[in-house]
């Protein structure tokens, strides 16, 4: 997954852009995300149904993967079954 790659959920509307990537497989709603998404969407696994939020950044534990949610959906993001938390950035004042 190189930075800039977009991944689509195969079970909901979620789309993410890779900001920092590795070879790990990103899942959404319990199913692996793909570049193309799915023509016919499967169903969201209830264990991974927390939803995604537009504009939020999701990171894995060791920080090797960072994803920006560019379209929200009902599935939750995970890697190897581990839910990805959002990265909380300290807000900076607008300088432009």
């Amino acid at each position: 997954m190189k930075p800039g790659t977009k991944l689509k959920s195969t079970v909901c509307n979620t789309e993410v852009m890779v900001i920092k990537g590795s070879d790990l497989v990103v899942e959404c709603g319990g199913a692996p995300m793909t570049a193309e998404g799915a023509a016919e969407k499967g169903s969201v696994n209830p264990d991974f149904a927390g939803g995604t939020l537009m504009g939020k950044r999701y990171v894995n534990e060791d920080g090797s993967v960072e994803l920006l949610c560019v379209k929200a959906g009902e599935g939750a993001l995970a890697i190897d079954g581990q839910l990805l938390p959002t990265k909380d950035a300290k807000p900076l004042p607008s300088s432009d």
Binding site: P3, G4, I19, M54, G55, K56, R57, L68, A89, P91, L92, S94, S95
Partner: peptide, 24 residues
């Protein structure tokens, strides 16, 4: 480059933080 400008925006700003009444 796109990576420079996006790197700046994603590093310094959060998405949709403005109120609908805000204006720049």
């Amino acid at each position: 480059r796109h990576t420079n400008l996006l790197g700046y925006i994603l590093g310094a700003y959060e998405f949709m933080t403005a109120e609908e009444t805000d204006a720049q």
